[in-house]
Amino acid sequence: MLPWYNKNKEQLTGYLFILPNMLGLICLTFIPILFSAFLSFTEWNFLGGFKALKWIGLDNYFAMFEDPWFLKSLRNNFIYVAITVPLIMLFALPIALILNSKVYWKNLIRMMIFMPYVSSAVIVAVVWGLLYRPSEGLINSFLRDLGLVNPPGWIASTTWALPAVIIIGVWGLIGYTMILYLAGLQGIPRDLYEAAEVDGANSMKKLLYITVPMLRPTTFFIMVTLIITTFQVFGTIFMLTQGGPAGSTSMLAYYIYITAFNFHKFGYSSAMSWFLFLMLFIVTFFQWRQQKKWANDF
């Protein structure tokens, strides 16, 4: 047992080691977060300086639910997440399984699938914009060659814009999810498969009874991060559709940005950010609880 002062000294050294990082986190993350929490109870145009700040209590939080733009963004956001996340996982797992077995050009294929994740959002938006062009775009030219007379208008159509944005979202995140699945697959002990083979299990059975259950923690992690990431979709919307046409692709993160920087309503915008945070927190909290339950079943 060390004397108390020695123990304290050791603690101090430890704290000093993490201090630089903590300082950055406190100044650039925690203080702004707290400030935005404060702002969410005010009405503030930041161009007016602090003298323009007005305390209005919970009004911002009530105003949200009467704001058609907010409600539309929220609705779009839910649809986006509910479709994008399962689709990504549905595509990423088989790709990871294939790439985990012996295939030719493994590294090249892996890189190609991962590429969209590290590409600049600006370039992605420009390229997809050209592809989606209704009259002479590559996609619609192809569809016309297939015999479709009236191909969709994609991001120039109020019905097709959201699916178009979802396609970009799925395409952009498959690579990242696939890498996580690949890592998860590496972590499954070989002897489980060997034992199953001895018992005469075929590959379908091995997949269903060994691979999928063993990937549960990975799947859970992927789901949580994907929900958080896709809820905050911003780059594609900002660069490609500006929430249009007619608000059909407006999402919360984009509307929060518009409210702050175009309408100069910082208080309202902060309130919406906090609403988004609380919503994600609750969703994630329940997933976490659910995960605990699954872990017990296993």
Partner: peptide, 8 residues
């Protein structure tokens, strides 16, 4: 067309 201008 409006659609072509806003997409491409």
């Amino acid at each position: 067309p409006y659609g072509d201008v806003v997409t491409a």
